[in-house]
Amino acid sequence: MCFLLTLFFSVNLMPSHGISIEENNKDRYDVKIEKPATDKADGSRIYISRKTGKIVFREVIPMTGHKWSAWKTAKKATYSKDGYKVRYCLKHPHVKHVDKKVLIRTGPKWGKWIIDRNPTNNKDGLRHREDLLHKGRREYEIIPVINIFPREMNILQKSNIEKRPSRKDIQSNPKTDSKENTQEASEADSGANSAGRGQDVTDVGVSSNHVPFGAADAAIVLANGTVAAFWWILLLPLVKVMFWIARKRREAEEKSL
């Protein structure tokens, strides 16, 4: 009989689901939240025995999750400033869970220019830049042809001629001077060329010295014509009179003879 009783109690005192009947009495345990549950991850709650001070049970707290409302624009994005939109959790109305998302401004934020094609003397170049905020937005720009003024060309040519070794210089010291002179000449050529190339940024878009026919030119031409017509009208009768007098004098002289 005693054996049966001891067997019965031993079976009932066996831990069920990891907790014994004795341990299941929560009055004897301290309950603590080990890890709070978030909307995306489970949390855990622990039971610490008051007797032993050891953790006897660990309970999983399911993740909270959210049931989001529709996005609502709180601040509209402008050309230069970002806006934002929000949505609220409908699952826990007593707790204010807000999700916020930035609305990128509509204006571009241009990156650096990338040259697609360098300009030459007779062909335009091309470059582009990309919007860093909005993918796929790209701006192209034509780089004008390299334009060197004729006057500057003359200066360059003159400088080349001056720097080039003359025949006399070469003949005076053919062994030593010729190499130096040719080197100088090549340097001068390269310098001139590089100077010419250097014009592409500064002189691009500057036109030549040609000035179109304007209002000032028209005024000068009109003034010239007016003055000529005025003198013609005023002087023509006088000239005619002079011719008449001369003819009369000649006739008088012929008669007297």
Partner: peptide, 13 residues
């Protein structure tokens, strides 16, 4: 030139 010519011709006439 016109003024000079006018003066000369005017005097002669």
């Amino acid at each position: 030139a016109g003024a000079v010519a006018y003066a000369v011709l005017y005097r002669k006439v």
